Amino acid sequence: MGAIFGWTVLALVFVDELLVMAAFGVWGGAHDPRAVLVWLLPLVAMGVWWAFASPKAPYGGTWVRPLVKVVVFGLGTLALWDAGHEGWAVALLVFSVVVNALALLPSIQVLVEEQRL
């Protein structure tokens, strides 16, 4: 596969990560009339993502990184569903599964490993 396809998939993975953070904000806005959770929940999710799931996560590991990704994307999907956006929740789930599965292709993992050096 070409490098353009690989970088497009990686860009979509990043968009997916932004979307899941926004999902936490949507849920927070639907459940906190003072809107504190609108900012707090995405910040907590970003902190967890940085520490355990990002490519350079200080506490990520062979099984920790994928587990945290599944938990964060799963909770983000549930957050949208609980906020009354069932269609968007399903769309986020499908999009997340597809782009993250594509990102596991060996030709795309080579691009990721090149950037870690």
Rank of each mutant, 00 (worst) to 15 (best):
M1T: 11
G2A: 06
A3G: 10
A3Y: 12
I4D: 11
F5S: 03
F5W: 12
W7I: 08
W7T: 04
V9H: 04
L10E: 09
L10Q: 04
A11F: 14
V15S: 03
D16C: 14
D16I: 00
V20F: 03
F24P: 04
G25R: 00
W27K: 01
A30K: 12
A30T: 12
D32G: 00
P33Q: 13
R34L: 14
V36N: 13
V36E: 15
V38Y: 11
W39T: 13
L40Y: 10
L40Q: 10
L43H: 11
L43K: 03
A45S: 08
M46T: 11
G47Q: 11
G47C: 08
G47W: 09
V48S: 04
W49M: 05
A51M: 14
A51Y: 12
F52D: 07
F52L: 14
F52I: 02
A53K: 03
A53L: 01
A53I: 00
A53D: 05
S54R: 09
P55Y: 10
P55A: 04
K56D: 14
K56R: 15
A57N: 08
Y59Q: 04
G60N: 12
G60L: 05
W63P: 01
V64K: 10
P66M: 04
L67I: 01
K69R: 10
K69I: 04
K69Y: 09
V70H: 09
V70I: 15
V70M: 14
V70K: 06
V71D: 05
V71T: 07
V72H: 05
V72T: 06
V72A: 03
F73A: 01
F73T: 01
G74I: 08
G74C: 11
G76Y: 02
G76N: 00
T77I: 08
T77R: 02
L78P: 06
A79R: 01
L80D: 01
W81M: 02
W81I: 07
D82G: 05
D82E: 03
A83P: 08
A83N: 03
G84N: 12
G84F: 11
H85I: 03
E86F: 06
E86G: 15
W88S: 05
A89K: 09
A89H: 12
A89W: 09
V90K: 07
L92A: 00
L93V: 06
V94E: 07
S96R: 01
V97N: 05
V98E: 08
L102K: 01
L105H: 08
L105W: 09
P106C: 12
S107H: 12
I108A: 02
I108R: 01
I108D: 02
Q109F: 08
L111I: 11
L111H: 07
V112C: 03
V112A: 06
V112G: 00
E113C: 00
E113S: 11
E114I: 00
Q115N: 14
Q115A: 15
R116Y: 06
L117N: 13
